[in-house]
Amino acid sequence: MFEAGEKIFVAVAVISLIILGLAAFLFYLEHRIGRSEKKLRELEERLESGPPGESGIEPGARGSNREH
């Protein structure tokens, strides 16, 4: 299908595709993390705007197990 001298271009194309795929994955991750950060900020603002009982989440309702 390819001449010996042309195979290197196939290798360049394949590795470039892998790098573009990696970049797309990193941008996707960034987008997801950004969305979660926004949601968390909104939740924190809601919680700060009123006492815990009035914010819709009861104190201690979500447990106290910490995972760092």
Binding site: L29, E37, P52, I57, E58, G60, G63, N65, R66
Partner: peptide, 22 residues
């Protein structure tokens, strides 16, 4: 990659703090 790891760990940390407080 470092910045993504950091933001992810910071999210986990913030969620853990929220979970502990509420």
């Amino acid at each position: 990659v470092f910045s993504l790891y950091y933001r992810l760990d910071r999210l986990r940390h913030q969620i853990a703090e929220l979970t502990e407080n509420y």
